[in-house]
Design a protein around this nucleic acid. Sequence first.
DNA 1: TCTCTTTATCGTAAATTTACGATTAATAAC
DNA 2: GTTATTAATCGTAAATTTACGATAAAGAGA
Lengths: 91, 91
Amino acid sequence: MKKKTSSDLSQMCKALGNPIRMKIFEHLKEADKCICGEIVNILPIAQATVSQHLKVLKTAGLIKGAICGPSTCYCINKDALDEFKKMVKEF
Amino acid sequence: MKKKTSSDLSQMCKALGNPIRMKIFEHLKEADKCICGEIVNILPIAQATVSQHLKVLKTAGLIKGAICGPSTCYCINKDALDEFKKMVKEF
DNA sequence: TCTCTTTATCGTAAATTTACGATTAATAAC
DNA sequence: GTTATTAATCGTAAATTTACGATAAAGAGA
């Protein structure tokens, strides 16, 4: 894994700096893993928007998505979360 | 001090989720304290924009500003930083 | 007082983000 | 095959953010 920089930290912060994405991440953290549709159900926003937010979290490296039949199964990227915590700790 | 919520964490993340603001905060952390003009000098952006970013950091509670003669002296809010670290640790 | 310095705020343009419905793509079930 | 389900992507509108120059406000020093 590539060494993370202050810029990576900023990007992760930005991804979590949106209340909807924070909720998604927290749900994923508690649910261990779940499909996109489940997230759509617990949030008051459209499916397209949820997909967009998931993409942002994925691009930031914070979550992983695996195609699973017709649906996509998302889970947090534990390594990235640990790295995030480590960076903030040393911040 | 009021109990911080997941929403406060999101707001702090958002404030640090901009590379310029991240730089400002890091500078303030190392410099202990400095006036606005010094920050303007080390960044490639206009004074008005720096002032705007400082306001965002201040609103998020991450920094404090004290009027000091004709200038304003900024410093990090150590309590808020500690609280931020604590929240991320327990995240 | 007048002038200079410093920084906040105003007004605004451009870029980005957020949100949506519609559509597409891909699999599952029949 | 057809149909239903699920999620990504497209196109786009609205909101927000970021940036700037100009101006205002407030203190320092002559």
